[in-house]
Design a protein around this nucleic acid. Structure first.
Length: 803
RNA sequence: GUCGCUGUGGUGGAACUGGCAGACACAACAGACUUAAAAUCUGUCGGAUGAAUAAUCCGUACCGGUUCGAUUCCGGUCAGCGGCACCA
């Protein structure tokens, strides 16, 4: 009997969507479960097979938790502002709103064809006015709290197109569209002060149930370090170059200084610097490189010594030369470093190349350069005046004390984390609701005026001189100051795509509220998100940004929890059959539509979960899909083996309880592949037995239902178990029935397996040892040897150590 | 370069907290059914020696360490993947 998945899957999907089967309940007395997946960016390519990996996983958890009596919120929406849609719109002369609507319709059809149990009544879209009204509102709160400010920041500038480019549009240093040179050019941009929250973003990780690698990655990204800021006087001036160092103990080993080529002193001391032209030329060269290229270790060190500028080492009064080099960035620390070539790899390379003196200050043996800067550095100080003989750790404290006493430096905590560049010179984003008034400065649009809607236009091309396309729309730009009424101009930059995705989990809990982000009542009930699954690639940007916004909302009393997500897990990437990333150019893209069409949604879902370890990346295999299809058909055909017996047959009782336990626990641990393997093994056992009782089938169908919901509902109905499967209860297991009376244990001699014996599971260690020693085979093997030790692990093994 | 992760049969993977390496699949091969093929069902399936479903040895990227015992813990090396702040 063939399984007619097309008709059956359609039948149940029609029922679910028309009856809103999975709509979240209003009942706030029930225990809640808020499951969240990263909402997709609706691209023109349609759904990728990677999306359903995350969505199926949490769909399984959501469906299981519903059967366990939870009130489940499992929502979905569209993260729809962004660059690809805008570029598509420009290229094809279609308004991005229309492009977005088309893509959303396609994504929605695709997601619904897979049978996810999303609550579609809560669908949100970041480009809806009623959504971005609140994105703008949150921005205004940030602005009012002093967390938004303007600063000159470099943008990628295409010298031919005369537009600003996203990093992704710069390929090998040239413009992706025209191939012309791209340079860094400064532009005044809106910034968000995420660094003010750096310490809390680290500290609060401790109480969260995030997978460890996410915590580590976030901590390293924020990059807290302790050290000192030290002032090096510029000889013959009142100015000092301030550097940040984590190793103030090595100050006596500083033999030169390096400024970032953009450091303001280069301009300020233009007249003093004899080779200024050379320096300016070097700076222009550096502007052509990305930060990534500049800091790459593999490349050859370059730099220019500023002739005429000298710094004074504050601890020994020695004059040392000042260089500029592109490996020093303005964006970290103070934009200047003291170079201690004996104890830093990059400084050492630089010093070798330019013949700068190298002074060893920590006794480190022959390979001085190997004694790199680390937190765990140890050793005795040498060539270091009053520090000589001290251990590194003592020397650090002693030096900080000295610096502070003599007012030449201070202890300082530094973070690698940088403030968030929040401006985009683009059309398809939320307008920033601020007005520039010559009298009042930056004035927020009145909150009652929100949303500040994106003005209509047919021309989304970037503006002149790197301005946003909105700058061309003077009717919209020219306005009056909300404060004093004078003529004023609107901000024309828009927000980055990250804005809408930084708070979307809050909108799902009350998506139509017109008075607030969400009602207090709903926030109190639903927050925090219980389980958030998403890709590792979002760990340091999206996940950190949304934690930051949530904390700001917490500080102003909008939300009730200091963190948005109680738990964070991550899925691995699905690669093409050839083990490479799926991409059109590689021709290895798998279309979910084809899979659903050929094999059905249940097979597709099962394969997505069976493909491999959930948190690891793994290649697609069409043969693997066929294997899952075979499994689905074998399950379907079990109907022919169905008996009239109600409970479990005697031989299967223990196995049924073990399988319930295994599947229940594996789903919670996201071990979906082994949960399915257990159900496959059970299916094989039913085939061997040649029959299945009604009780066995009933339990089996519930266990498989979260993974293959359509077929299991149909089989439930045909078996006449009553009602719908999705309204029944998750089966319970009896722990006692999962434990065997007898176990096979391994007998090892000196760690090598020699025999297997079956003994009662209840035996104590002594009894086990006795049973093994008295075994004839073992007796023969240890005959004539001295037994040194016997290790007994109940239920597992006995290891006899002999000499 | 840097931060993080990963490395197990022909392939995807399993092995819970250090205790039988290879569950469950895929592929391959063989058998049953069939006029035949497909589908389905059943069986074999890490390597070496071996007639063997006997026995022994080797085997979880590589080198070393800890341990009665290491795929698992520690140190080092190599390779691959993800992030690197304006793709999402």
């Amino acid at each position: 009997m063939d399984y007619a998945f097309k008709q059956i899957e359609k039948k149940w999907q029609d029922k679910w969507y028309s009856e809103e089967t999975f709509k979240t309940k209003d009942d706030k007395t029930l225990p809640k479960f808020y499951a969240l997946v990263e909402f997709p960016y609706p691209s023109a390519h349609g759904l990728h097979v990677g999306h359903p990996r995350s969505y199926t996983a949490l769909d399984i958890l959501a469906r299981k938790r519903r059967l366990e009596g939870y009130n489940v919120l499992y929502p979905i929406g569209w993260d729809a502002f962004g660059l690809p849609t805008e570029n598509f719109a420009i290229k094809n002369k279609i308004h991005p709103r229309i492009v977005t609507a088309d893509n959303v319709a396609n994504f929605k059809r695709q997601l619904q064809s897979i049978g996810f149990s999303f609550d579609w009544s809560r669908e949100i879209n970041t480009t809806d006015e009623n959504y971005y009204k609140w994105t703008q509102w949150i921005f205004l709160q940030l602005f009012k709290k002093g967390l938004a400010y303007k600063q000159e920041m470099p943008i990628n500038w295409c010298t031919s197109c005369k537009v600003g480019l996203a990093n992704e549009e710069v390929v090998n240093g040239v413009c992706e569209r025209c191939g012309s040179e791209v340079v860094q050019r400064n532009k005044s941009q809106w910034m968000l002060r995420i660094t003010e929250y750096a310490q809390r973003l680290i500290d609060d990780l401790d109480d969260l149930d995030y997978i460890e690698k996410v915590k580590i990655q976030q901590k390293n990204w924020i990059g807290r370090s302790e050290g000192a800021e030290v002032d090096f006087k510029i000889a013959g001036t009142d100015d000092a170059i301030t550097v940040y160092t984590t190793r103030p103990d090595t100050l006596f080993g500083a033999t030169y200084m390096v400024l970032s080529p953009e450091h303001p002193f280069v301009e300020k001391y233009k007249d003093k610097i004899k080779n200024y032209d050379e320096a300016a030329e070097y700076r222009a060269q550096a502007a052509r490189k990305s930060e990534f290229e500049r800091t790459e270790m593999a490349k050859d060190k370059t730099g220019v010594m500023l002739d005429g500028l000298c710094a004074v080492n504050p601890v020994n009064g020695k004059e040392i030369p000042v260089w500029i080099s592109d490996y020093v960035l303005m964006s970290y620390g103070t934009g200047a470093i003291m170079a201690v070539p004996a104890h830093d790899d990059r400084d050492w390379e630089f010093a070798k190349k330019f013949n700068m003196p190298i002074i060893e200050v920590v006794a480190g043996g022959e390979n001085v350069q190997e004694a790199a800067f680390t937190d765990t550095a140890t050793g005795k100080m040498v060539n270091s005046g009053f520090l000589d003989g001290l251990e590194v750790k003592e020397a650090i404290s002693a030096m900080i004390e000295y610096l502070e006493k003599n007012k030449i430096g201070t202890k300082k905590v530094n973070y690698k984390l940088r403030d968030w560049v929040f401006s985009r010179q683009r059309y398809w984003g939320e307008p920033i609701p601020l007005v520039w008034c010559d009298h009042c400065g930056w004035v927020p649009v009145d909150e009652s005026e929100l949303p500040l809607t994106l003005p209509e236009t047919d021309n989304f091309e970037p503006g002149e001189n790197g301005e946003s396309p909105l700058a061309k729309m003077t009717d919209w730009v020219n306005t009056t100051c909300p404060k004093c009424g004078a003529a004023a101009k609107r901000e024309t930059d828009t927000m980055p795509q990250w804005a809408g995705s930084s708070w979307y989990y809050l909108r799902y809990i009350d998506p139509n509220n017109s008075d607030a982000i969400a009602s207090e009542e709903n926030i109190n009930y639903w927050m925090p998100v219980d389980w958030y699954n998403g890709g590792m690639e979002h760990t340091t940007l999206h996940l950190l940004y949304s934690r930051f916004w949530h904390k700001v909302l917490y500080d102003i009393g909008v939300v009730n929890t200091p963190e948005p997500y109680a738990r964070r897990t991550s899925h691995g990437m699905i690669l093409g059959e050839n083990n490479e990333k799926m991409s059109k150019s590689r021709g290895n893209v798998v279309n979910p539509d084809d899979m659903v069409e050929t094999f059905g949604a249940d097979t597709f879902r099962t394969y997505e979960m069976f493909i491999g370890a959930f948190d690891q990346s793994t290649p697609w295999s069409i043969n693997g899909v066929r294997g899952c299809y075979r499994f689905i058909e074998r399950v379907w055909n079990m109907q022919e083996m169905l008996t009239d017996e109600e409970g479990y047959s005697k031989d299967f009782e223990s196995l049924m309880h073990k399988t319930i336990k295994k599947v229940t626990e594996d789903i919670e641990r996201m071990k979906f592949n082994t949960a399915i393997a257990a159900l496959m093994a059970l299916t094989n056992d039913f085939y061997k037995k040649g029959s299945i009782t009604r009780g066995e089938l009933r339990t089996f169908l519930i266990l498989l239902n979260p993974t293959a919901p359509h077929m299991t509902e149909e089989m439930w109905e045909r078996a006449g178990f009553g009602g719908c499967l999705n309204e029944t209860e998750w089966p319970k297991y009896d722990e006692a029935k999962t434990i065997d009376d007898e176990v096979e244990i391994v007998v090892q001699i000196n760690g090598k397996v020699k025999d297997r014996i079956t003994i009662a599971a209840s035996l104590s260690k002594d009894e086990m040892e006795k049973a093994v020693i008295e075994n004839d085979k073992i007796k023969a093997l240890i005959d004539g040897k001295a037994v040194v030790k016997v290790i007994c692990v109940p239920g597992k093994l006995v290891n006899i150590v002999v000499k």
